[in-house]
């Protein structure tokens, strides 16, 4: 994952993975911006934009499983890894590279030039 990072990306340490209960997500505030970070039961991590493109629900409160994310408000579905909506015509989610380091800390990579301001809506 780290190998395919955009050039201007910067790593943020979000702390221990235990901050997120297994199978759930949490919204992280980073400066002015928010990102939803998820941990699957299998221990994989994913990061997407924080608010649903449909009506801005907090996506971190959605259900996840089988690589999918379901918005808690009107159940729009997205692919966790690619952000693609399940239904044609929906808008995709932005996703961000994220991984765990050997200490179990969550490292989130944001492209500072593109990221700023985009995820707050």
């Amino acid at each position: 994952m780290v190998a395919t990072l955009p050039l201007a990306s910067r790593a943020y340490n979000l702390g221990q993975i235990t901050r997120i209960p297994p199978g759930e997500g949490r919204t992280f505030q980073i400066g002015h911006d928010a990102v939803a970070v998820f941990q699957t039961r299998g221990g994989e991590v994913f990061a997407t934009q924080a608010w649903c493109p449909h009506e801005a629900a907090p996506l971190a409160e959605g259900m996840i499983g089988a690589g999918k994310l379901v918005c808690p408000i009107h159940a729009c579905r997205f692919d966790l890894a690619t952000g693609q909506p399940e239904r044609n015509g929906g808008r995709p989610l932005k996703t961000y590279p994220v991984c765990l380091d050997e200490m179990g800390d969550i490292l989130l990579y944001l492209d500072d030039r593109r990221f700023s301001g985009l995820a707050a809506g």
């Binding site: 943020y12 340490n13 979000l14 702390g15 901050r19 997120i20 209960p21 949490r26 919204t27 992280f28 505030q29 980073i30 928010a34 907090p58």
Partner: peptide, 13 residues
Amino acid sequence: EHPNQFARVLTLV
């Protein structure tokens, strides 16, 4: 049930 059960937004540590 978890320290962050009712947390809405987490910040950097």
